[in-house]
């Protein structure tokens, strides 16, 4: 699959999270271009949602800014279609907007827009199957999340069901720039996953600094940075936002 190939092209690969429509759709389009030029392997493109249970203040506020501009799932799909040639796009969306859109219609339209896959953080093994099947029919990846509280047998099952990559949540709690990851615990979790899957393993939540990337590099295939990236450009627009994002991405390597 497109996504898996892109992640295998670098070690570790960098996945950039951007909130679609923050501060506006035009800027997001430029930022996608910028992170692609700076060597990101894929973009997780956030679909704004008012009740993001897995997100901390930075991404929640970015979502609110996008919502205040009236950005909808439809707009995010249109944006995906415009940038599809530049970099693989993985939609990051809570389930309710997808449910209202229709699970089948979402899979069809995401495929039509050229998305590489979709991550839905509030669908666990117990509820994920209908959407996962529809995405798979369209050849779209559905990375699933593994948390520090996930027991080994469950982690292995998640790894077997995931497609594209396995998303390892680095810590308890929600997204947001944070302290150094607990590498020891992550090593054990990743070792469990390796025995269950050959998919790339990406670590996210709290990854925000070059030192975090260095610490993870021996174990993880990819790292995901969201809140710190958003913090880097928040309050700016246009070329200034672009410069800040480029500078921040370069600081990670």
């Amino acid at each position: 699959m497109q996504l898996e190939r892109a992640l295998r092209a670098q070690t570790p690969a960098f996945i950039a999270y951007l909130m679609a429509g923050d501060p506006d759709v035009e800027t997001t389009e430029m930022l996608i271009d910028a992170v692609a030029r700076c060597g990101a392997a894929a973009v997780e493109l956030g679909v704004p949602y008012g009740d993001p249970l897995a997100d901390g203040p930075t991404i929640a506020a970015a979502g609110q800014r996008a919502l205040s501009k009236g950005v909808t799932l439809r707009d995010v799909l249109a944006l995906t279609d415009r940038v599809r040639e530049k970099i693989p796009i993985v939609l990051f969306t809570y389930f309710n907007p997808v449910y209202r859109y229709g699970v089948g219609a979402f899979a069809a339209d995401a495929a039509k827009a050229g998305a590489a896959g979709a991550i839905v953080p509030d669908l666990t093994l117990e509820e994920v199957e209908p959407l996962r099947e529809r995405l798979q029919e369209r050849n779209l990846a559905m990375p699933l999340l593994v948390a520090p509280t996930t027991l080994a047998y469950r982690a292995a099952e998640i790894a077997r069901k995931a497609t594209g990559f396995v998303y390892v949540v680095s810590r308890l709690g929600v997204t947001g720039a944070g302290k150094a990851p607990n590498v020891k615990a992550l090593r054990a979790q990743i070792a469990t996953l390796r025995s269950a899957t050959h998919l790339p393993i990406a670590v996210g939540f709290g990854v925000s600094h070059r030192s975090h990337v260095k610490a993870l590099a021996p174990y993880a295939d990819a790292f995901i940075v969201g809140s710190a990236l958003i913090d880097a450009y928040t309050g700016t627009r246009g070329s200034e936002a672009l410069e800040r994002v480029e500078r921040f991405v370069q600081s990670l390597r």
């Binding site: 249970l53 093994l125 509280t149």
Partner: peptide, 21 residues
């Protein structure tokens, strides 16, 4: 067993809470 009353209920949470539930 999955927490449904007919079509309603279930468990839609981030993975970190699956263990807690």
């Amino acid at each position: 067993a999955r927490g449904y009353f007919g079509d309603f209920g279930g468990r839609f949470v981030p993975e970190v809470l699956a263990y807690a539930l």
